[in-house]
Amino acid sequence: MAYEAFHVLESTAVPLPIENVDTDQIIPARFLKATERIGFGENLFRDWRYHQDDTPKKDFILNNPTYRGKILVGGKNFGSGSSREHAAWAIYDYGFRCVVSSFFADIFKNNAMNIGILPIVVSPEFLSAIFSAIESSPQTRFKIDLPNQIFTILDSNQSQSFDINSYKKNNLLNGFDDIDFLVDKREEIVNFAFDRPF
């Protein structure tokens, strides 16, 4: 599924300073029953966001109108657990384009990039600086410059560069997906497959 190309993003951010946020929390299994990719944003962090009677939990960050933005800032080891891409869909469909953490689980990171979310790894110290900046002012703006691979806390002008391989970067900058790339390689793949032992 094509997504919007990603260049430079300036936005406020939503802080979620919790470690080991697993994909079962991002989207609980009972919401994986759809046969199309629709409505996942509504159930993002469902059980942290709503009581069992579906009333919002007041103290959860997404229910606090003070915090808004296209950037989600998570604690260490974000996205661990289940490989469900639905977790990345839920984050994207809710309106986030970028997730920042000091450490991501592998599958989540792949899934995120495959659907047009930019996962940015910053140092643990820089992550703390981001959390403090939001804490002192929820209106703090951040700038993500993908072409130059720089993440900046605009109010304080602190910045850090981030890594991304040039293939994935190019995909995000252009809104390309891997499938089109691979489909173009089918002939090469078929030749390769010809002599497999099984």
């Binding site: 490989s83 599958i107 899934n111």
Partner: peptide
Amino acid sequence: IGTSEVEM
């Protein structure tokens, strides 16, 4: 793998 990769 994720669903995009299943598709691949």
